[in-house]
Structure formats: structure tokens, C-alpha cells
């Protein structure tokens, strides 16, 4: 049974230049107990997707269509009160901006206690003792609970959030770039910590990141997002060993290898497309080294190339060949012309 099901989700932002289609028809399924990675460049809509799950979108965002159901409940139709009790209790969030996500005027301990007491009837000292145990678990000294956020380092805040996110044993933790602000060593420690504790509790996680190596370490499945669409979806090993979509291949080139082989990093030239005036074709086409005229004309549909492995590309049948070519630096050379001419 799927814990989370997202069907054809479309979210637009009202901006001064017009409506920006941040999320454009996304389908996602998450099985209970599994971790899902949501990977993409900045601005590809990944944070918007996870925020819509908790209904925490900014006021200028609007869900145009789609269904988000969690544990059998349609989240977009849930009354405010029920939503409030579901938040944190069943879905918790490790925020992107951990630096500013703690209220500066309250003690860190009090803020975690507040989250617990919003959902449970319990005495304060009892809850405090529980939070002390949690702090111990995430590697923070319990006496630090009495400190204010400004007395914490970035890594400590992040750990405090993990403690907070785990406090109520939620079924789902959404970690929105939980480690971006941290150095690589601390990143690894923290991710392993979340994974250990949370999986022990049998919970699932959605990990939003632009760093594919983080996903490889933590997740079972991964969705590669680009310009509000999912380009490729599948099990982590499959996606990283046999990427089918040129964008995934490009992303893989842009990061140091997970397995440790030495090679040059190749970046994908160009920048993500304009979400306000989008073209009819594949949104990645302008940056894709393998794009043909078909790619600019028509949006490719999602196809299942192996059980549980989906990709949206017109050239999936040539994927073996493309994979070899994608590893060469020349292939990604210069920026591709915006309009196609051949």
C-alpha cells in the first residue's frame, strides 16, 4: 500500500511576469518504509512539491489540479483542524533553511516541547525528559536544550531539527535539503543518523536535494525533476548505473562519483528554462546534446523501460548509445541553440 500518492499535481505561482508553472503534472508514489529522493537543480520545483504535501505553499502559489493522498486521506481537501493535527504528528519536516527556522526568542528545548505538546496531552517535565533522550540520540548534549538558537552552530541546529522531526515518530519525514548548509563530513553523519533512527521506527522519508551522492547513500528510489516535471524515476541503483534520460546522465557527470572512480566533472551547459512561457516540446531539449527536432515539437510521454523504472524522453530506445556518448566531455561542449534548426 502506498503511503503517499501524488497524481497529476500542477502548481502555479503568480508572479509579476505572469503565471509560473513550478510543478507541471507530477505523479509520485511512496511505499511505507521506503525513502525517496527528489533530485533536481535549484528552482526545478522540488521544494514546491514537498511543501504542497504539508499545505505550506506561499500565498501566491496555487494548486491548479491534482491529488495528494496520504494514508488514504486527500490532503488538499482536509479541513484546517485535521490538517493541523496531521502536521508533525504524521508528517514532519526538516527544513531547508535550518539556520533561520528556529524562533530566536525561545529556547531550543521549548520549541521542541511545543511541537510535542501541540499533539499530545502530557506534562511538560515528562516531555522535556523525552526531548533530552532525543538530543542524546542525535548526538547533542541534553543541557544544550536550555540554549537559545543563536548559541547553536549550523550543524547543531540541523541536529536539533532532526530530533524535533523524530519526536512524534511520524510516518513520513520530509527533509528539504537538510544538509546544504553543512560541510561534507557533518552531512554524512547527519544523514546516516536520520536514516538509522527513522528506519528503525519504520518511517518513510522524502529527501529533497540537488546532490545525487546524498540520495545514493540514503534512498531506495529516486525521482529526477527538471522544470516542474519528473524526467526519470526508479530504484536508486538502476538510475545511477543505467540512467535512461540525458538529464540524469548530465547530473551524474556533474557530481563526483559515488563509487570513487577518478574522472573529470562535466557540467550541463545553459540554465533551466523559463517557467512562464514554456515551449511545447521537451523542456530539457534546449540543453540536451541529443535533442532532435521532434524533441522541440512534442513533449515526450513517460514510459516504463523496466519494472518500476520510468523516463520521459523521445530517445529511450537509444539510451545505451547515449549513455556512452554522455560520458565524453565534448558531447556537452557549448550551449545548445535555443531554437532548433535541423
Amino acid at each position: 500500500m502506498n503511503l503517499l500518492e501524488i497524481k497529476n499535481l500542477k502548481i502555479v505561482y503568480r508572479t509579476q511576469a505572469g503565471e509560473a508553472r513550478a510543478v507541471d503534472g507530477i505523479d509520485l508514489n511512496l511505499t511505507a518504509g521506503k525513502n525517496l529522493g527528489l533530485v533536481g537543480e535549484s528552482g526545478c520545483g522540488k521544494s514546491t512539491v514537498v511543501r504542497s504535501i504539508l499545505r505550506l505553499l506561499p500565498p501566491n502559489a496555487r494548486i491548479e489540479s491534482g491529488r495528494i493522498s496520504f494514508d488514504g486521506k486527500d490532503l488538499s481537501k482536509l479541513p484546517e483542524r485535521e490538517l493541523e493535527s496531521l502536521r508533525w504528528q504524521e508528517i514532519s519536516l526538516i527544513p531547508q533553511g535550518a539556520m533561520n527556522s528556529l524562533d530566536p526568542v525561545y529556547r531550543v528545548g521549548d520549541q521542541i516541547v511545543e511541537a510535542i505538546l501541540a499533539h499530545e496531552k502530557a506534562s511538560r517535565p515528562e516531555v522535556w525528559a523525552r526531548v533530552e533522550k532525543l538530543f542524546d540520540l542525535v548526538g547533542l548534549a541534553p543541557f544544550r536544550l536550555r540554549d537559545f538558537p543563536h548559541q547553536y552552530s549550523g550543524g547543531m541546529k540541523q541536529r536539533a531539527f532532526i530530533a524535533m522531526a523524530l519526536a512524534l515518530h511520524p510516518k513520513l519525514i520530509i527533509a528539504d535539503e537538510p544538509t546544504t548548509a553543512l560541510d561534507v563530513i557533518v552531512q554524512g553523519q547527519i544523514l546516516r543518523r536520520i536514516k538509522e533512527i527513522h528506519q528503525l521506527q519504520g518511517g518513510s522519508m522524502i529527501l529533497v536535494t540537488h546532490d545525487i551522492s546524498v540520495v545514493a547513500e540514503t534512498c531506495h528510489e529516486v525521482a529526477i525533476m527538471y522544470a516542474g516535471k519528473i524526467m526519470e524515476f526508479g530504484r536508486v541503483e538502476e538510475i545511477f548505473q543505467e540512467p535512461a534520460h540525458p538529464y540524469t546522465m548530465g547530473l551524474k557527470n556533474a557530481f563526483p562519483s559515488v563509487t570513487g572512480e577518478r574522472r573529470r566533472l562535466i557540467s550541463i551547459p545553459g540554465k533551466p528554462p523559463d517557467l512562464i512561457n514554456s515551449s511545447p516540446g521537451c523542456l530539457f531539449a534546449p540543453r540536451c546534446p541529443f535533442a532532435t527536432s521532434l524533441c522541440f515539437r512534442e513533449m515526450p510521454a513517460e514510459q516504463e523501460i523496466a519494472p518500476g523504472h520510468l523516463a520521459a524522453c523521445h530517445h529511450l530506445d537509444r539510451r545505451e548509445e547515449l549513455r556512452v556518448r554522455a560520458q565524453k566531455e565534448d558531447t556537452w561542449g557549448e550551449e545548445r541553440p535555443v531554437s532548433h534548426s535541423s
Binding site: 505550506l56 508533525w88 519536516l93 527556522s101 511545543e114
Partner: peptide, 12 residues
């Protein structure tokens, strides 16, 4: 501020 969004996420 981020901590306001966080307060909402906590289910307050």
C-alpha cells in the same frame, strides 16, 4: 520568516 513556516509545519 522561516520559523513561522516551521511553526505551521509543527501543527500549531
Amino acid at each position: 520568516e522561516d520559523f513561522i513556516e516551521m511553526a505551521r509545519a509543527k501543527g500549531l
